[in-house]
Nucleic acid binder design. Structure first.
Length: 971
DNA sequence: GTATTCACCATTTTT
DNA sequence: TGGTGAATAC
């Protein structure tokens, strides 16, 4: 009824996309921050309210669960929960899993299939490799198996992503061997691929026997299902988000989803294609046009996220990709604050600098910035260690996004394995995992013996164990009959309970009791307390997800022990468990629960009927295996934290302030990466997450793994800096009320009070000043005062010197432009000072200079595709005009820079070594490279108040405890 | 056969 | 840094 709500606040291009005729396939090609999710949601709303398409006949596919949730929430807000909830929404994997549960029987897939995670896949492959090696030895074959498990996993996954079967691989390998022509580079050795293909074939067999699918199988079986029985779905419109990240199989799926009506809308951006390593293919954009003739394109080129400075720098970086069809992005926001490239001595210093800068910005922003406004984006997770330590040490609350995944923690996995086994006794990886958990004196050797035996007979491991326990087949060499008896009894009992429909939470509790799992944790894990927390978290999750999924089935059993303390819980669980064991002996279910359950395709009925597809346990297991997200804990606590995330996981998100550490060769591009351009895009994605402030940092030395190596700035930046020095500065920006007011507009927030900013500034300098004194750690305004002498005795030089304080405070109070900077002796030479240039012109293109016209953008598709409404997003003419305005922009900036230069130079010459205040110690760090002796003396002055060694020790201890042995505990 | 210790290793991104 | 595998002790 509200026909226009979803059309409000859209720009021309967005509006065109939203209201574009639904029967024509549409590509919405959109740069970062251009509102593509908004456009997608509004288009869905428009289809429902204007075109009267029933929400249940719309499917929207996202790339991550997080994106799916966000889409769901925003859709709820726009069209109401009632309607939004019927839209079919999820990742390709989740949607396929759902379909396969419902209709899998069409392709002989039992409903209770398990989903293998990466670990389990690897274990299966490992088993296969062992068997193959053994077999090769048996036949006296001298063919060695030289394929490593991880490599096999990778190639099998790649094959599946392309929809290739083991036969396909073998055929190709044989052909390549026969042809004797040299292969195109990048192609794997055919002999090797031959081995892979046979491993692949065996793997498929094992999966079938295990009644298990891996992630890729979900997609390939989905395709198979839809080929076999297209009628099991009937979607009137198909949406795919992040289309540039789809692989071949996913494109096939999309085709099948849309088979009936041919109505597709996709959203994507080739510049943000960062999943090539996962077989994503940008070519799908052109393939789609072939699959869906008449496809039109709409371009969203207005960036609403970032300042001009951030956008200009990001575009300059991405424009170095020569293979990229040039395209533009413009912002209505002011130019803002120049992007900082910080140079540090090493990774410790880098972490501390970032932490300090976060603290400073929060403090001096007059309330504009919260902790949760900051993000640190990493190329890989291992980079987070120093940052975590530094943040912890400074009392900055932080959270790692997508680091250690909840469902991958050992204790959680143990329990999940039991649950999987209850649901699907054929699932060997789970069986092998828990046979000796808790310790039943069934050691690795026995487990391996069982695996071999089962593998030989083609029966599931559980089946074999059960028969041994029942005395129907001979025991293995170290007898395990008695040892496994209790295990089998437990499984039988729990399975009965599951069939009766006991809630998952109760099932887990029952399981814990019967296993006395708390006791097991206590014995085996030094940090059992925090692990027990995770167990409880799992119960909570089960409770929540069951109430969310099946609202009708209320859980009678509630988690009444959740209010008591850990220790009490554990004690009680332990006691109760032993009590329950007695119980169990009385009401023991004996019988052959697994006896006739060999639900291999063909005869799947007995089992699947017992546990029907809506069974809460199965729903729960599916959620846990498909959700790689960290379980959302109490959200209030999460909200106020600095986020540490990988660049990949950060896609689609935005933060006011973004730090990107380790922008060095070897990290960007990552040294093992094959696709340099993808790495560049990754950096681009990371940069474009930032709204108002962006910091890229690099270190002169970095310790990766074992030893500390020299590092240098990423070529992605050096190339750009050579061309345009004005895009970056090496200094921390000095910000006052005027600047924060400007930035607040970009963020769409109220400007901070002038007095608040000033207070923050003063407080900041006060803290800085006191913290230079040795005994400053007395608390105060900051959670933890800046630890002096953090540099812990290494020759690395950290300067927390804030000279000329009064001068700078004056500047701040006046909102003056910063004028005091030294020249950073960074790799590329001197950089211009920071500047803040409010732009008075709106919608000025900040395109990287390009001589190509807009019409040739997305060149791969422009010939076959007509562009929707060429006037969309006009207001400037691309091509020459664009270039012209860019250069004039630069002229303006050059002028400003020039005017700031005198003082800049003056300071630089008067204080060549000591870093000015408000500055990263980059410049001094850099100078330490060229003048080691001088700088080390500086460092001594800076930290002479504390014995370096002691500080180092403190830090180490702090760091470790702060991290938590492995799993950070919730408090 | 299992537990413990020690040395060595390599170290991405995610459904 | 920690996770894994091999050698050693129990």
């Amino acid at each position: 009824m509200d026909d226009v709500k979803h059309l409000r606040n859209l720009n021309d291009a967005q509006l065109a996309a939203v209201t574009f005729v639904p029967t024509t396939p549409l590509q919405i090609l959109a740069g970062p921050g251009s509102g593509k999710t908004k456009t997608l949601i509004c288009r869905i709303a428009h289809l429902i309210s204007h075109h009267k398409i029933h929400p249940s006949r719309i499917v929207a596919v996202t790339f991550t669960n997080k994106a799916a949730n966000e889409l769901r929430n925003r859709l709820d807000g726009l069209i109401g929960k009632a309607e939004a909830s019927s839209v079919v929404l999820g990742t390709f994997h989740a949607i396929c899993a759902r379909l396969l549960r419902q209709h899998g029987s069409e392709i002989n897939l039992p409903r209770n299939f398990s989903i293998c995670d990466a670990d389990e896949v690897k274990k299966i492959i490992n088993g296969i490799l062992k068997d193959m090696v053994a077999a090769a030895g048996l036949h006296g074959s001298n063919k060695r198996i030289e394929v490593r498990d991880s490599v096999a996993v990778e190639y099998i996954s790649k094959a599946k992503s392309k929809g290739l079967s083991p036969d396909d691989l073998e055929t190709k390998a044989q052909r390549d061997i026969a042809s004797k022509e040299s292969l195109p580079k990048g192609e794997a050795d055919p002999q090797f691929m031959l081995q892979v293909s046979s491993i692949y074939a065996e793997y498929m067999k094992v999966c079938k026997n295990n009644n298990a699918l891996d992630f890729d199988d979900l997609l390939t079986y989905g395709v198979k299902l839809l080929q076999t029985k297209p009628s099991c779905i009937d979607y009137e419109h198909v949406f795919v988000d992040e289309f540039q990240d789809t692989n071949t199989t996913q494109l096939q799926l999309m085709k099948h989803f849309a088979a009936r009506h041919g109505n597709v809308s996709i959203v994507g951006d080739p510049d943000q294609s960062i999943y090539g390593w996962r077989s994503a293919e940008i070519e799908n954009l052109t393939r789609m046009i072939k699959l869906f003739p008449g496809t039109k394109q709409v371009f969203l080129e207005d960036n609403y996220r970032s300042t001009g400075a951030i956008l200009a720098a990001s575009l300059a970086i991405i424009s170095e990709d020569t293979t990229r069809p040039p395209k533009t992005l413009r912002t209505s926001h002011p130019y803002g604050v120049t992007v900082t490239i910080g140079n540090c001595a090493d990774e410790h210093e880098e972490a501390v600098c970032i932490a300090e800068e976060i603290k400073r910005l929060k403090l001096i922003s007059g309330g504009l910035l919260k902790w949760s406004d900051f993000a640190i984006l990493l190329r890989f997770n291992a980079l987070s260690r120093n940052l975590e330590t530094a943040l912890q040490k400074m009392g900055i609350p932080n959270r790692i996004l997508s680091g250690q995944k909840f469902f991958e923690r050992v204790e959680v996995k143990d329990l999940l394995a039991y649950l999987q086994l209850i649901d699907n006794p054929n699932f060997d990886p789970a069986a092998l995992r828990v046979l000796n958990v808790p310790k039943r004196n069934i050691g690795n050797k026995s487990v391996e013996e069982l695996r071999k035996r089962a593998s030989k007979t083609g029966k599931p491991v559980m089946h074999t164990v059960e028969k041994i326990v029942d005395g129907r087949i001979p025991d293995i060499s170290p007898p395990l009959r008695s040892k496994a008896r209790e295990f089998i009894q437990t499984m039988r009992d729990l399975r009965q309970k599951a069939i009766k429909g006991i809630s998952v939470a109760s099932l887990i509790r029952e399981l814990l009791m019967q296993l006395d799992y708390a006791e097991h944790l206590k014995k085996t894990q030094p940090d059992w307390e925090s692990r027990w927390e995770n167990v409880r978290e799992l119960i909570t999750f089960a409770t929540e997800s069951s109430t969310a999924q099946v609202s009708s089935q209320s859980n009678s059993v509630q988690d009444d022990d959740s209010s008591s303390t850990d220790a009490a819980d554990v004690t009680r669980a332990t006691t109760t468990a032993s009590l329950l064991k007695e119980d169990k002996q009385a009401g023991l279910v004996d019988g052959d629960l697994w006896e006739d359950t060999s639900p291999l395709p063909g005869e799947d009925s007995s089992l699947s009927d017992e546990l029907e597809s809506t069974n809460p346990l199965r729903v729960f297991l599916e959620t846990t295996s498909l959700s790689t997200d960290v379980v959302a804990n109490d959200e209030d606590a999460e909200n106020e934290k600095v986020i540490i995330s990988t660049c990949h996981a950060a896609k689609g998100l935005e933060w006011p302030v973004v730090f990107i550490p380790s922008v060095e060769r070897g990290t960007y591009p990552f040294y093992r990466s094959e696709d340099t351009e993808e790495e560049r895009r990754l950096l681009y994605v990371a940069c474009t997450r930032a709204q108002v402030l962006l910091y890229l940092t690099h270190a002169a030395r970095r310790k990766l793994g074992g030893d500390s190596k020299e590092a240098e700035l990423s070529e992605f930046l050096t190339v750009v800096m050579k061309k345009n020095k004005n895009l970056f500065t090496s200094n921390k920006p000095i910000l006052g009320h005027k600047e924060f007011s400007l930035l607040s507009k970009v963020l769409g927030r109220p400007a901070p009070e002038a007095t608040a900013v000033q207070q923050g500034v003063q407080e900041y300098y006060k803290v800085q000043a006191t913290s230079t004194a040795p005994a400053a750690n007395t608390g105060g305004v900051l959670p933890q005062p800046a630890p002096n002498g953090y540099s812990q005795g290494q020759s690395t030089n950290r300067t927390f010197k804030f000279k000329n304080m009064s001068t700078e405070q004056t500047q701040h109070s006046q909102g003056a432009m910063p004028a005091v900077f030294t020249t950073a002796r960074s790799v590329v030479g001197s950089l211009p000072p920071v500047q803040i240039t409010p732009s008075n012109k709106v919608s000025k293109p900040i395109a990287a200079p390009s001589t190509q016209t807009l019409q040739t953008m997305w060149a791969t598709t422009s010939t076959t595709v007509s562009r929707v409404n060429p006037t969309i997003g006009s207001g400037y003419t691309p091509g020459n005009a664009s270039v012209a305005s860019v250069s004039s922009h630069h002229q303006i900036r050059a002028g400003t820079a020039a005017s700031a230069r005198p003082s800049h130079a003056a300071v630089a010459s008067s204080q060549p070594i000591q870093a000015p205040r408000g500055q990263f110690s980059f410049s001094s760090a850099a100078s330490s490279l060229s003048q080691p002796s001088t700088s080390s003396s500086t460092s001594q002055t800076a930290s002479s108040s504390e014995p370096p060694a002691k500080v180092a020790g403190t830090k180490r201890r702090l760091g470790m405890s702060a991290r938590g042995p492995e799993f950070p505990r919730k408090k």
